[in-house]
């Protein structure tokens, strides 16, 4: 019984250093496509292969809309692919709706309560969000806490395309939150409906129902990206872009 104390001490602190230092361990992020410039054939093939239509073409320049990208690697497959790939994870970005909600003031910098609503997610985002509570990512060290009731919540974390059945509960939770408040959409589905929506049973993302302040792309976004989103919500990190910039030269 007493072994766990010794074992724990011997193991030491395994929690990630992020955001103090960038996390460099392998496998913390699947990465995202950045941009590509190629021949007509290559460009056509890449656009054709993208299952969610995230790749946009102008001439022979390709950019990626992260609202749709599910980083399926189809555009990266094969050694000849011109698609660039970024293995980082600081993906969270402010949306065009940012500021529609009365944002959190500086008093919330190191203490926010988060209410998570599953708007019909497939489970991937949920299991990534779950990781935030576990020792490796441990969001409590940053002052982020989960709460069961929206009456105490400052940030509403939503995953999933918002199915018909979850529309009312999501709206109710949003209405029940006191101001100031923020809404954070996690995952491609929550941003654009992803591979599910819009359809006969779901919307095309959270922003159709309530204004979204912070978007975290990815399918699913790795836990570090979600932490980046939370840090962005309290303005401790800067925003990334939701569309990749073109390849120069």
């Amino acid at each position: 019984m007493s072994k766990w104390v010794i074992k724990g001490l011997r193991t030491g602190i395994k929690t990630t250093q992020y955001p103090r230092k960038m996390e460099t361990a392998s496998g913390v992020s699947p990465g995202l496509p950045t941009a590509a410039k190629g021949t007509e054939k290559e460009v056509q093939e890449l656009v054709f292969n993208c299952p969610t239509g995230a790749i946009e073409r102008s001439g022979n320049q390709l950019t990626v809309d992260y609202n749709y990208c599910i980083h399926c690697f189809r555009c990266k497959r094969g050694s000849q692919s011109p698609m660039g790939w970024d293995y980082g994870y600081e993906w969270a970005a402010n949306t065009k709706d940012s500021g529609a909600n009365r944002g959190l003031g500086s008093a919330f910098n190191r203490s926010i309560n988060i209410r998570f609503v599953d708007g019909g997610a497939c489970g991937a985002c949920i299991s990534e969000i779950e990781q935030l509570n576990k020792p490796y990512y441990n969001m409590h060290r940053l002052g982020f806490f989960a709460t069961p009731t929206p009456r105490e919540a400052d940030v509403l974390l939503v995953a999933g395309p918002v199915t018909d059945h979850m529309r009312l509960p999501l709206k109710k939770a949003y209405d029940a939150m006191p101001t100031p408040k923020l809404v954070m959409a996690v995952g491609a589905c929550a941003l654009s409906g992803g591979i599910f929506g819009p359809s006969f049973m779901s919307d095309a993302g959270v922003s159709e129902l309530i204004p979204v302040d912070v978007a975290v792309p990815g399918c699913p976004p790795p836990p570090l990206a979600i932490i980046h989103g939370l840090l962005l919500a309290v303005k401790r990190k800067s925003s990334a872009l939701l569309t990749s910039s073109e390849v120069r030269g």
Binding site: V117, T149, P150, R151, L168, P169, L170, K172, D175, A176
Partner: peptide
């Protein structure tokens, strides 16, 4: 706003 009821219909 309505009291929080767990989001039931």
């Amino acid at each position: 706003a309505a009291a929080w009821d767990g989001g039931i219909r």
